[in-house]
């Protein structure tokens, strides 16, 4: 009998979970968020530059600013966000069950996740890819020069497979020293067991800050795989997806038009119709999204344009130090691939 009771309780819990999650899913997420008074945003458990809490509990990062942008669009106040740190394993389930309203957790956009999980990737706020980190003393400035090296890597990952493909394709000799955990691989590299450590570039930059002497290491310019990272929402609320997507696009568009948090107020007197539309002075972009006309102004004023967000969190002057020029995370007009559809 005991087993039957357990089974009954289990199915009851499942049923309840199903019922409650479908309830949240059916109502408009935007209205729910407004009613709650804050945006519940899923972030990482601490990836410097992407989403990381400091000693006082203040969250910063490029993903955190994505949450803040959506809050600014909805509430006119970028600070109305509650952050929920999530592990890679739990993130999609928590989003699907309605415990968070959006997920901004350096998540790679792939077909199986987009189509298979009933989720919607709203865009890419950081184009990542696998890279290499070496000691500066190695005097190597290109991955093409890595020959006869030992590479520390996390086992059982796509990283491990990309690594082999790259060295094979370039006809370079190497030895892969595999570890089960990322931390072990980093520690081994740091102790000199390997000459090179490889993972996603954002991960490299973040791990470097944890090494004994971060300044002794340098990330090589080559990127050997595609890892587009972006915010994710549930797939059943088109309006909410649009709000998240256009929050990202106006930041990109603002940079392209030269509008920043600092000059936005002086820009209000411009004659440029594109800027006028962007700032909500012309047209009715807010109405289409079900937001106030100032939604885009609030995002740019309170969070900044994409360039500001990038430089403040992962740019060359931060500890992460990812140079933007020459990377895909540059505007399309400057050789990158950031491209926002027209805001009109």
């Amino acid at each position: 009998m005991k087993i039957n009771i357990l089974k009954f309780l289990g199915s009851l819990a499942l049923f309840l979970a199903f019922v409650t999650s479908s309830v949240t899913a059916n109502a408009g997420t935007k209205d729910d968020v407004i009613k709650k008074g804050s945006l519940d945003c899923g972030v990482s458990q601490g990836v410097p530059g992407f989403s990381n809490a400091d000693a006082s509990g203040k969250w910063t990062g490029i993903d955190v600013d994505m949450c803040r942008a959506v809050a600014a669009a909805v509430f006119g106040d970028a600070n109305k966000v509650k952050y929920q740190p999530l592990s890679a394993k739990d993130r999609f389930e928590v989003l699907k069950s309605g415990q968070i309203d959006m997920l901004a957790r350096n998540t790679t956009w792939t077909l199986s996740r987009d189509a298979g999980l009933a989720l919607e990737f709203v865009g890419t706020n950081f184009y990542d890819g696998q890279g290499f980190i070496v000691r500066k003393a190695a005097k190597i400035d290109s991955a093409k020069k890595l020959n006869n090296v030992k590479v520390c890597v996390e086992t059982g990952t796509t990283t491990e497979l990309n690594l082999r493909d790259y060295f094979k394709a370039n006809n370079l000799k190497y030895e892969a020293v595999s570890f089960t955990k990322a931390d072990e691989a980093v520690a081994a590299y740091d102790a000199g067991r390997c000459d090179v450590y490889t993972t996603d570039k954002s991960g490299l930059a973040a791990q470097r800050t944890k090494m004994k002497n971060p300044a002794d290491h340098t990330v090589l310019p080559e990127t050997i795989s595609k890892e587009p990272l972006g915010p994710v929402v549930r797939g059943d609320d088109q309006n909410w997806k649009d709000i998240a997507a256009w929050s990202l696009y106006v930041m990109i568009e603002a940079e392209e038009l030269g509008v920043s948090s600092k000059n936005i107020d002086s820009m209000k007197s411009t004659d440029n119709p594109n800027i006028k539309r962007l700032l909500g002075l012309e047209g009715d972009t807010g109405k289409s999204l079900g937001l106030t006309p100032e939604w885009s102004y609030n995002i740019i004023k309170q969070v900044g344009n994409y360039g500001e967000v990038y430089e403040a969190n992962v740019g060359a002057k931060t500890p992460i130090g990812l140079a933007r020029d020459g990377s895909p995370n540059q505007l399309w007009t400057k050789g990158g691939i950031l491209y926002a559809p027209p805001v009109r």
Partner: peptide
């Protein structure tokens, strides 16, 4: 001992 730029490895 093989030297490749600043990386040394025994082969």
């Amino acid at each position: 001992l093989i030297q490749n730029f600043g990386i040394f490895n025994y082969v």
